[in-house]
Nucleic acid binder design. Structure first.
Lengths: 154, 154
DNA sequence: GATTATTATATCGCATACGATATATTTTGT
DNA sequence: ACAAAATATATCGTATGCGATATAATAATC
């Protein structure tokens, strides 16, 4: 049964749809806030914010890529990514230059300092996962559902 | 088996921990972004942002409450809520006044206009849920896991 | 090959979220 | 009662995220 139908049949009146406890969006929103908040002290050790951290994940993986690649990988908008990579450049973790072939493209490349940070960054997911409150089976099921949501367009 | 152990045993080298695809935080973050982004056009019709919408949910439920009650209900900080309620007051949806008994408290009360907005707001979750990509069973399981995460402190 | 469409990015403005710090008020402890 | 602790909020600064709009460069089309 579809989620929405279930909700409709379980409630006495339509106003109950507006209770926080009957929402899915709110636990999603809160759980993500919790996750990011719990990352903060660990990421502070390597002087990264959460968003900078996931940008660096893409950079660590690809080493050389376009701004557009980051936008696509993270499902964010270019006006979110643009100031972010400027900060990462200022920190010396990446270089930014214009593509000489197609001058619309911005080429991002990891620096030596960026590579070195990876060594310390590896400790973050290790420490982070140590007391995570879900089993691996739960995480697998959770990720599957989250992927369905990410691919959903209203 | 704990999530972290599973991840550790499945990977060949520790650097794979830094791949986006091996993260849980990232699908959580993306799915929440998707959910909020999908709400935006619906909420625009009633001139609310997502955060204003969940604040109003608390107000619609309690009608009269303290700023602190909203902070507790939404797991946000008071410096996030304070400017939010000022905007909602400016829109005429709530009133804000100081508690005469305990002058530290800020009392928030719904207005007639705020009550009226509820009538139109009810349509939002109805429309929103129509094409939601998860079954009611999945949503139940999902919420249970999300609650564990929300209650997790590192 | 000039016009149009598409692509990639930049810029601006608005709305969160948080930590850090400060302030006002009430409560607690002695 | 009076100093110290706790509580509730305010203020400031930093860092996202997004829509809207603009611009520059390339691709497509006729």
């Amino acid at each position: 049964m579809r989620y929405n139908n279930q909700v409709k049949t379980n409630i006495k009146n339509k106003y109950e749809l507006l209770l926080l406890k009957n929402q899915l969006c709110f636990p999603m929103y809160s759980a993500t806030n919790t996750i990011v908040n719990n990352y903060r002290p660990l990421l502070k050790d390597i002087d990264l914010t959460y968003t900078q951290y996931i940008v660096m994940m893409v950079v660590w993986e690809k080493k050389k890529l376009n701004e557009k690649d980051i936008v696509n990988a993270l499902f964010l908008k270019s006006n979110t990514i643009a100031p972010l990579i400027k900060k990462l450049e200022k920190k010396g973790l990446i270089t930014i230059k214009q593509d000489s072939i197609d001058r619309r493209n911005i080429i991002i490349e990891i620096t030596k300092k960026g590579e070195e940070l990876k060594e310390r960054a590896v400790e973050v997911p290790i420490k982070y996962g140590e007391h995570f409150p879900l089993t691996s089976k739960e995480v697998t099921a959770l990720k599957e559902m989250l992927n369905k949501i990410v691919n959903w367009k209203i």
